[in-house]
Amino acid sequence: MAILLVPACILILGLLVGPLCLMFRISLNELGPTQLMVEALSADNYVRAATDPYYQQIVLTTLGVALLCTAITLVIAFPAAYWLGRVENRWKSVVLIATLFPLLVGNVVRSAGWMALLDRDGLINWGLARLGLIAHPLQLMYTPKAVVFGIIAVVLPYMIITVSSVIESIPLQLEEAAANLGASPIVVFRRVVLPLALPGVAAGCTLVFVLCMNTYATAVLLGGPRFKMMAPAVYDQFIRSNNWPMGAALAFILLLFTMAFTVLGSLGFARRYGKVPRGPSERLAPA
C-alpha cells in the first residue's frame, strides 16, 4: 500500500525539499563585487539580516502584521465559527458557501478591487467628498492599515472553517449540562466551549499565521513600495537586486519563523482529554 505515497513523495522531494536544500546552500554564498555569486560557506547573510536595521525592520514588520492579523481574525472569526458549528438549518450551507466564496477570488484580483475602493480617486474618497465630509482625499492606500485589513479579508475563511469544525465536534449537551449546573452563558463559553475548542483555535491560528507571514500580493499592492514584508523582500533580493544569497537567507529566516510558530502552535495546545463521550442515536433535538 505504501506505493500509493510514491507520486506525492516524488513531487514533494523533487519540487520542495530539493530546491530548499539548494537554496540553503545559496544562502551561505556571498555576493561578489564583480560576480553575482561567489561560492563560500559563511553565515554573513544571516548575521546581516539579524543586525542590519533595514532587515530587522522587515522581520519585525512581518511578525507584527502576522500576529496582529491572526489575533483580529480570531476575534472576528470565532462568533461566526460558533454559529456555523451549532446551527442546523438551510442557512448553514448558504453561509458556508458565502464564507468560502472569497477563496475563489485570487489575491491579485481581490487586491486590485481594494485599490479601486481605497485609492485617492477610489470609491470611498469619492463618496466622502461627495457627502462633503472631507475636503482632501484621505490616504487610505499604501498604509499598514490597508495591508492588515486586506490580509484579514483573505485569511478569515480559513479561520472560520477550522474553528467551526471543532465547535461542531463539541456536543451541545456539554453546554446544556454546564448551564444546568448553574453556569451562565459567559461561564459556559469560558469553562466548556473555549477549552474544548482550543485545538481548533490553535490549528486555525497556526494556519492563518503562516498565511500572513507569507503574504505577498496584498502587501505589495496595498502596502506600496515602502511597506516591506518578508515575502516581497525575498522577491526584491532575487529579482531586483540580483542578490541571491541574501534573498535565500531571508527566505530561510521566513521559513524558520513560520515553522517555529507552527511547532509552538501544535505543542502549546496538544493537551488531549480523549474522545468526548457521544450519545446514542436518539438526539436531544425535539423528539
Binding site: P171, Q173, L174, A177, L181, V188, P277, E282
Partner: peptide, 29 residues
C-alpha cells in the same frame, strides 16, 4: 433561564466534561 432553575439533569449521553476530572465534574455545580 436554565442556569438558575436548580434542576439536576442526567443526560442520556451523560455529557461529562471531557477536560475535567471526575472530581472537577462533580464539583462544577
Amino acid at each position: 433561564p436554565p442556569h438558575v432553575r436548580e434542576t439536576g439533569l442526567v443526560f442520556q449521553s451523560y455529557a461529562l466534561f471531557p477536560h475535567m476530572t471526575v472530581a472537577e465534574n462533580v464539583g462544577f455545580g
